[in-house]
Simulated scan of single mutants.
Amino acid sequence: MRVNRFLLSSSLVVVALVVQVSVLARLQLPGAVPDLLLLTVVGLALVYGHVGGALIGFGAGLLADLAPPADHAAGRYALVLCLIGYLAGLARPENGRLRSAVGPMAVVVAAAVGTTLLYAGVGALVGDTAARDVGLPGLLFTAALYDLLLAPFAVPAVMALARRAENDPLADSGTTAQKADIASGWLSGGTGLRIGGQRNPLRVKAARSRGARAGRIKGVKRL
């Protein structure tokens, strides 16, 4: 399952980056650029959780930092997407299924605004004032608008592919290994099988009956 996650995430990130650089960046739209790479990270984080989202975000941001025509310090976008991936993963539902589109859309808007603010903030720390010259309010509005318009086409597709990879039959190998672990522990321990912190009631009853018989035998010997 981890191999499936890595292969799928890498493929989606590379495709999103290529489309981002070769198509979306050349549209010459006013303000910000639609961020397909960000939407891919958000979609994967909503399925894989905060740890997977942080790792995928860092890798995707690092590729974006190194891909031409990068005009900023390497690691800047990696830090931003790592934080965004972690925070988006916290919005992952317990069962992994989303009941409505309101939640993902809210996450997309928050991610677009947060990415722009974090990117501008990190740039200010390293002396890059391009965001201030362009106009931060305009960048925030256009980034949220473009990503919100693109999200219904990108995020559901990314989440569907990630869920399909999670339902791979090879994912059951972890459960099989866990059962083998429990069985080996039962055979070697000799103190009863524990499942969920409770002993097997049949083995407990057998142990008590053996203890009672041993007590009676000792009592007879003492007499």
Rank of each mutant, 00 (worst) to 15 (best):
V126T: 14
P93M: 03
A143R: 13
A73N: 07
A60D: 00
R76K: 12
L125A: 15
A131D: 03
A130P: 01
F58P: 02
G53F: 05
P69A: 12
D71Y: 13
A101M: 11
G59F: 12
L63D: 06
V122K: 00
A130F: 12
Y86P: 00
A112R: 06
A78P: 07
A88L: 04
G135H: 10
P137S: 11
L66C: 08
R97T: 11
T142L: 07
R92F: 10
A124L: 15
L145H: 06
D65Q: 04
L79Q: 03
A124T: 11
A131Q: 09
L125F: 12
V107A: 03
L125S: 10
H72P: 01
L145Q: 09
G127A: 13
G138K: 04
D65G: 06
A112W: 06
A130C: 07
L55K: 06
L83W: 08
C82N: 02
H72Y: 14
V102I: 13
C82S: 12
L66M: 13
F141M: 14
L81M: 14
P69T: 11
A70D: 03
G135K: 10
G121C: 04
G57R: 02
R132Y: 15
L90P: 02
P104G: 05
A78H: 08
G96R: 05
L145A: 15
A78G: 11
M105V: 07
L83P: 03
G114T: 05
V51E: 13
L81Y: 15
Y146I: 08
L55S: 13
P93G: 05
A120K: 02
P68G: 10
D133K: 14
E94R: 15
A110V: 11
A106M: 10
G127Q: 12
T129M: 14
G121L: 11
A120T: 07
A73H: 11
A60Y: 00
G121H: 02
R92Q: 15
R92Y: 10
A144Q: 06
C82I: 00
A111G: 03
V126S: 12
A91T: 11
G57Q: 04
D128H: 05
S100R: 11
I56V: 14
A73S: 14
L62C: 09
V108I: 06
L81P: 05
V107M: 01
A143Q: 15
E94V: 11
V51Q: 14
P69Y: 08
P93A: 07
A78E: 06
P104H: 04
T115P: 00
M105I: 09
D65S: 08
A131H: 13
P68K: 11
N95P: 07
R132N: 14
A106D: 01
A130S: 15
A74I: 14
L117D: 03
Y146Q: 09
A64C: 10
A111E: 01
L90H: 06
L66W: 07
V122T: 09
V109C: 10
V51I: 12
V134K: 08
A143I: 06
F58D: 04
T115C: 09
V108L: 02
A101N: 09
G89P: 08
V107Q: 01
G123C: 05
G75F: 03
A130N: 11
R99Q: 10
V113R: 04
G138F: 02
L55C: 14
V80M: 03
A112V: 02
C82K: 00
I84A: 01
D133N: 12
G103M: 14
A110H: 01
A60T: 00
R97D: 09
